[in-house]
Design a binder for these strands. Sequence first.
DNA 1: AGCACGCCGACT
DNA 2: GTCGGCGTGCTC
Length: 715
Amino acid sequence: MSSENERQGGGAEGAGPEQLALIRETVRKAKVPKAKPRTWRGAALAKELPVARVVVNKGVLHLDQYFDYAVPEELDADAQPGVRVRVRFGAGARNVRDGRREGGGLIDGFLVERRAESDYSGPLAALAGVVSPERVLSADMLALARAVADRYAGSLADVLQLAVPPRNARAEAKPSPEPCPPPPEPAAATWERYPQGPAFLRALADGGAPRAVWTALPGPHWTQEIARAVGATLASGRGALVVVPDGRSAGRVDAALTELLGEGRHALLTAESGPERRYRQWLAVRRGAVRAVVGTRAAMFAPVERLGLVVVWEDGDSSHSDDNAPFPHVREVLELRAAHDKCGFLLGSTSCTVEAAQLVQSGWAAPLVADRAVVRAAAPLVRTVGDGELARDEAARAARLPSLAWQAVRDGLKTGPVLVQVPRRGYAPRLACARCRTPARCGQCAGPLEAPDERELRCTWCGTAETDWHCAECGTNRLRAQIVGARRTAEELGRAFPAVPVRTSGRDHVLDSVPGRPSLVVSTPGAEPVAEGGYAAALLLDGWAMLSRPDLRAGEEALRRWISAASLVRGQSEGGTVVVVAEPTLRPVQALVRWDPVGHAVRELAERAELGFPPVSRMAEAVGRPEAVEAFLMAAQLPPDAQVLGPVPLPVADPGRPRRPGDPPVGERWERALVRVPPGSGAALAAALKAAQAARLARGGGDPVRIRIDPPDIG
DNA sequence: AGCACGCCGACT
DNA sequence: GTCGGCGTGCTC
């Protein structure tokens, strides 16, 4: 981890503005001789280290630097590094010559250092107050936040906002429990299914820092396996941190930890527990009373004392991307923590992202995988029904499902629950002609059409309603709408097996688990309940929609969703069967059939390396109105090996996706430029973009341009 | 983003 | 002379 910009923040990199500032400073010095740590309004200052270095809680990039304040005597004791403070900040506070004016508002900040003197030449304002003597920000956390800010071209204050939860006075007043002594080292148990598993635990228990990309076998054992890795780390006298994608998984790992370690040794940090309880848990961790943490993405910054292991589960899940500036990703932040704290690293998933494959290929982490024979026995039998096959087979079309699928459902229901994975509503694929498959386009602007409900057709670009669509190629007026079809198929399945109960799990109503009795469970991706004893069979109808998306990750994402649903099905040795409706020649489909997510990721990685795509290259995006993007790129001093792609009009957002801050205003066409650099120039790219953005904002902002490193969706 | 400072035209 | 327009630049 680089420690550039340690002092006085990471703001202006360019020499020009700094030199100007220097000249101004000298002029001012000449005018106001000897502006030493002078008392502000003559108040008494702390005798020792009277200067407090403060990071102010303003996320703006050009204020990403430390500011020095004088420490009044009465705040001396409480004003320790790491506490929250209040300071006057703003142009008004500067005018201290008449000792009366106190312009500038009070804002929050963190005190990061006490010093003997300031290198700021003007008179210092005094700290307005110490919010609480609780030292919430450690030196380690500050360094991590700095590294994350630099990695993502963001400001320290923005990252700190993610890393330190808002204060809650009631929670702070309560004492934290006494810390527990280290537990005994747990047995390896199901880790023995992986040849390197027991050795990995051993290394953790011995105080080592092993790093692994773990391809988990399908089934429910992963929670206990993570708990055992945590237990081994605790046994070495160190702490551990586990980050999972959602509250349900967090609850499962929490239960496994309680089972293995008992109550009181670990904390559960999720948004669901509410602010007071959450802050109390967080404080218990910060105070060193609790050494193990499991939580969702905000927990990636949990201030675990003497960190020995970080774990990320299912790194391909999109909820591991934070949606607040600067949009850090859990996997990347935990990589930075592992490097900085020299602790163990475990990335676990039933699937495999390209980034995970890269960690192995670069040698940064070791693979932790089971033997092929073990994988084959644990995974269900996967069969495919091709799209073309379905279209040709008249009988299947009439029944809306091929006979193979019917057969799998009928057989499965004899021995247990059957899972039916359907696409999310509003997750509209491109509509196409039902006969010749020509994409359906808007008559006004040729944009793609969507069907928000079954009776209405609308253009996703211009919004025009299409009332009388006919295929431009063959003239038919029948459209193919796979989403609607899949939902109806699920309903028809229910009617076809009237004796069997049908349960649904989706966005608004997510089931956690279902009993082992025969039933039909219809679920959207990510909301699949676990079944007691595993599902007897699964039917995956999500393929066509997923794979038709013009996204670099479409294949990886489809495979991930399929594998995570299929992982809930009994192994082949117990008769578990999966039928996926997708073209069998496609690479992700073949990878599912062979149950080879790593092979898929490795091949994707090779292809991306060849094409110069991330994560082999580092990419950043600049989004805004066309003139603004152009001006930004002109002004930015990009590294010499940077390559600018575009700008091109911003792809239209998925209909149904909620609007996020930073989205273009409705009706405005924004453009997006991608900037890419070869491996090794990522830091330089981030620094250049940050400097350009800071300079822009300092000059009054103007047209906003949104910068993002590693954008999650690049066409 | 705010907010003060400064260098221009109309006014008692 | 002086009040106040808003353009420019700083915030310890």
